[in-house]
Simulated scan of single mutants.
Amino acid sequence: MENNEFEREQLELPNAGKKLLLHSCCAPCSGEVMEALIASNIDFTIYFYNPNIHPRKEYDLRKEENIRFAEKHNIPFIDADYDVDHWFELAKGMEHEPERGIRCTMCFDMRFEKTAEYAAANGFDVISSSLGISRWKTMSQINDCGVRAASRYPNMEYWTFNWRKKGGSARMLEISKRERFYMQEYCGCAYSLRDTNKWRMANDRPKIELGKNYYE
């Protein structure tokens, strides 16, 4: 798994935590996070809960890539419900909000609340997410949502570790190329797909073709 070209930081869960439930949005974002956790011998499980991803074809592509990588490293994988109708209900009135706006806050809240609920019911004392490693996301927004979700349960902690630091973002790309992960070209939701395609058409670029591009 390791190329031995760098020395990883030895990680520890906050507040002497014992077991981590890692919310994963996709294989490219979680690959580096997973390898860092494995290298530090941290006990963790992947929790895939992303009802925002649209359409179903895109959702299945992202999920199967994540399952493939988890199975490669014998990491437990929880496949949560795709309650997309509930996501659209919560997004009503926010259809034209910008990326990183209140719709994204709603989306993070929804996913992290479900993550924290599962964690509390199944013996996990720490939760975190791979979402923060992406440069397209606002880390403070993600952390605020995670801390808020964890605060609803006694003795639950949201780990605000900065996965981008010390070369994390670069290794994320290296792992994606090494594993030839599916390359998603928009955040995930129907409105992100709509707005990305609008931008592409305005800049004389073709619309996104689902399932076409992979890291090389």
Rank of each mutant, 00 (worst) to 15 (best):
E99V: 09
N66T: 11
K63F: 02
C107I: 02
Y118L: 07
G93D: 08
N66V: 01
T105S: 11
F77K: 06
D60H: 09
I78L: 05
C104P: 05
T105P: 03
D83R: 12
R111F: 03
F77C: 06
D125M: 06
G101I: 08
G101K: 10
D79G: 04
M110G: 02
G123V: 09
E71K: 14
M94Q: 14
N122F: 02
M106N: 12
I102W: 01
K92R: 13
E65M: 06
E97Y: 07
W87K: 03
F69S: 07
N66G: 08
E95M: 08
E58F: 00
P98W: 11
E95H: 08
E58G: 01
H96F: 13
G93W: 00
D83N: 15
D81P: 00
H96P: 07
A116Y: 02
D60T: 15
K114C: 05
H73T: 12
R100G: 00
I67S: 02
N66Q: 11
Y118F: 13
M110E: 06
H86P: 00
C107L: 01
E113M: 12
A121T: 01
G101Y: 09
Y59V: 02
K63V: 12
R68Q: 08
T115Q: 04
A119V: 11
F88R: 15
H73D: 13
T115G: 04
K92D: 08
I75L: 11
A80I: 04
Y82E: 06
T105G: 02
H96E: 14
R103Y: 03
P76Y: 04
V84P: 02
D83A: 10
G93R: 05
D83P: 07
E97H: 07
I75H: 09
A116C: 13
F88E: 15
G123D: 13
I78H: 01
E89S: 09
M106P: 04
E65H: 05
H86L: 13
E65G: 12
A119E: 06
A121Q: 12
G123W: 08
Y59N: 03
E97L: 05
H73P: 15
N122P: 11
F112V: 11
M106G: 07
D125Q: 06
E64R: 13
